[in-house]
Amino acid sequence: MKINLYFVRHAHSTYSSDELNRPLSERGMEDAKLATNLLKELPIDHVISSPYKRAIQTVEGIAEYIGKEIELNDGFRERLLSEHPVADFDKAISQVWKDFDFALEGGESNYVAQKRGVEATFQVLDRFEGQNIVIGTHGNIQVLIMNYFDQQYDVRFWEQLAMPDIYKLTFNKECLEQVSRMNTDERSLSITGYTI
């Protein structure tokens, strides 16, 4: 039986070194409403989120709409790039995506972060067969999860993600069958080139 996972990359947030409690910006709050309106058109059964505030705030509207509590799952939190602020973010991202085993001091390699995210995804697939699940998450971990199933989802794909951005991944058991993007600009569902 098929299951649809709607990965929601969080809306724009106000920068802070406090990853857990960094909130959405005013613009992010407005854009989160747009994401909610798109998701309201779908028969959503359950909402799961990274424990980070910006991810929760992005999906709390749809959770309220369907009358369900948001289930927090640490597996969907953003990848830890480094335990210290990095001087050159673009260079650091390039390094970890070039070598999946490489990790900055105190940070997660792509393989480690991907393993965490994929394990969380498989748990959801196992628990919610036949349902439509919204997952509030973050750009890098989302693309690492997608990359596990299809390597076309890489750092270049991550670079073009919007805030917020919604991708529908359709699975048949644990097999990814189709990926489609909900276009938050045009308020319509548009299919990417990927389908099996």
Rank of each mutant, 00 (worst) to 15 (best):
G136D: 02
D165N: 13
Y153I: 00
Y148A: 13
Q160G: 08
Y153E: 07
F149S: 01
I166D: 12
Q160N: 11
L169N: 02
K168A: 09
N172S: 12
P164S: 09
I166V: 14
D154K: 10
V134Y: 02
G136C: 06
N132I: 03
E159Y: 11
D154W: 14
G136H: 03
L144S: 05
A162V: 07
Y153H: 11
V143G: 03
L161N: 09
N132Y: 07
K173D: 10
L161D: 10
W158Y: 15
N147R: 11
E174G: 02
V155E: 11
I145F: 02
L169A: 13
K168F: 02
Q142I: 00
G136L: 01
F149Y: 14
Q142K: 06
M163F: 13
T170V: 10
Q151A: 12
K168H: 04
Y148N: 12
D165S: 14
E159V: 00
T137L: 09
F149P: 02
I145T: 04
Y167S: 10
D154I: 05
N172F: 08
E174P: 00
N132T: 00
N132P: 08
I145W: 04
T170K: 14
N132Q: 09
Y153G: 02
G139C: 07
Q151K: 15
L144M: 11
M146D: 03
I141R: 02
L169G: 07
Q160I: 10
F157A: 07
F171I: 01
Y167G: 07
F157K: 05
K168Q: 12
P164L: 14
T170N: 11
I145C: 03
F157G: 05
I135A: 04
G136A: 08
L169E: 04
L161K: 04
I135N: 03
V155G: 07
M163P: 03
Q151G: 10
G139F: 10
T170L: 13
E174F: 06
N147V: 01
L161G: 08
V143T: 15
D154A: 03
Q142R: 05
N147K: 09
D150F: 10
I166H: 09
N172G: 06
L169W: 03
F171T: 01
E174I: 03
E159A: 13
E159I: 00
I145K: 08
E159S: 14
Y153D: 07
D165Q: 10
F149W: 07
T137N: 03
D154F: 14
G139R: 08
L161W: 06
P164M: 12
F157D: 07
E159G: 08
D150V: 00
Q151H: 15
N140Q: 11
T170M: 14
W158F: 15
I145S: 02
E159K: 15
Q160W: 12
L169Y: 09
D165R: 11
G139Y: 06
L161C: 08
W158D: 12
F171C: 05
L144Y: 02
K173C: 04
D154M: 06
I141F: 09
Q152I: 05
Q160P: 00
I135V: 13
Q160Y: 13
G136S: 07
I133W: 04
Y148V: 08
F149N: 01
N172K: 11
Q160D: 13
E174W: 02
N140H: 08
Q151E: 15
N140C: 11
